[in-house]
């Protein structure tokens, strides 16, 4: 059965898909940046929003993915989009390795460790580790992505690539959220002792959440590399991780709608505030505080889970008769 809400969503998406027709290249590119951050924030949302793990180093996985793609593409001439799965897998593997020993850390201790990881990654990239990353100069000359024989280079072409990927992400993560796995993560977030008591292997679930988030961020790295054509360590600083963290919390931890809105506000507002000239980041900081004060749970917190109780009853009756 198609619900009214779904139709509204599809209609909204259809209208949004027409955006590049009316916007110029600049605003289309702003939307592209928003899209990239939205996907990244959605992947962080699994770890931070759904599972409640304080992760402030998400740019590390993004970096691993972007550099994997860039190295494979520039050194071995593998078409960029083909490197996407591998970028994801390496980022996921990296996530598994670093998260394994630290997953039991509590709250703020985990936070500083993830900050440490993203800083170590940045320093390693800057120091040209293994002679692969090009140091501070980064890697240049990355190919544009090719899709069905079409070279993607203009902002409106990227718009469809990025937001198409974003749509897939939303669909999959929505399914994940409502699965047994998603409910387990929420349980861990709310009360990990009780969750463990109910037979949830919390370390394992936390690790899986970490790996999924890292995997997805790694794949976004591929698109980023194709869009910028040059990547350098500065694009993956601690500050990027802070932005992603802010998007998820401001949007409302664990809510996909909220994260999307958060991405629009955090990435879009500084562009809108350009009229304030050099005061624009000042206004932005004040806006962040104000939004948090007036919506303390985030802008669009997750709705309580609803279950159609009558369904269970009718099923039970059916069995009786």
């Amino acid at each position: 059965m198609i619900k009214k809400q779904d139709i509204l969503c599809l209609a909204g998406a259809a209208v949004f898909a027409c955006a590049p027709l009316v916007l110029d290249a600049y605003w289309t590119d702003v939307l592209n940046n928003i899209g990239l951050y939205a996907i990244l924030a959605l992947s962080l949302n699994i770890i931070l929003g759904q599972c409640g793990l304080f992760q402030m180093g998400h740019a590390a996985f993004f970096a691993v993915g972007a550099y994997t793609s860039a190295i494979l593409n520039t050194m071995f001439d593998i078409p960029l989009l083909w490197t996407m799965p591998l970028a994801g897998i390496l980022a996921g593997l990296f996530g598994l390795i670093v998260a394994r020993p630290i997953i039991h850390l509590r709250g703020d201790y985990l936070l500083i460790v993830t900050i440490g990881i993203v800083e170590i990654i940045r320093i390693a990239l800057i120091n040209d580790v293994g002679g692969l990353t090009g140091g501070a100069n980064g890697i240049f000359g990355i190919d544009r992505p090719m899709l069905f024989g079409l070279k993607i280079k203009r902002p409106y072409q990227f718009f469809y690539l990025i937001w198409g990927f974003c749509a897939v992400t939303i669909f999959l993560f929505h399914r994940l959220e409502n699965s047994r796995f998603g409910r387990a993560l929420n349980y861990i977030k709310d009360d990990d002792v009780a969750a463990e008591g109910s037979g949830i292997d919390i370390s394992r679930y936390k690790l899986i959440a970490f790996v999924i988030g890292a995997f997805w961020a790694g794949m976004v790295g591929t698109i980023f590399a194709g869009k910028m054509k040059i990547i350098s360590p500065e694009s993956f600083s601690f500050w990027e991780s802070v932005l992603l963290f802010t998007i998820v919390i401001l949007g409302g931890m664990g809510s996909i709608r909220g994260v999307l809105l958060g991405a629009f506000l955090i990435i879009g507002l500084p562009e809108l505030f350009r009229d304030f000239a050099s005061a624009r980041m000042l206004v932005f900081g004040a806006a962040m505080i104000a939004m948090m004060i007036f919506r303390t749970q985030g802008l669009l917190p997750p709705l309580p889970r609803k279950y159609d109780v009558s369904r269970f009853f009718s099923k039970a009756e059916g069995e009786q008769s």
Binding site: M253, L282, I289, T296
Partner: peptide, 21 residues
Amino acid sequence: SSPRLSAVVSALGASIFFQNA
């Protein structure tokens, strides 16, 4: 009385505000 991380975002906002001020 809200989730702990909400205050963290407010703190980050304050940091941006002060730095630019």
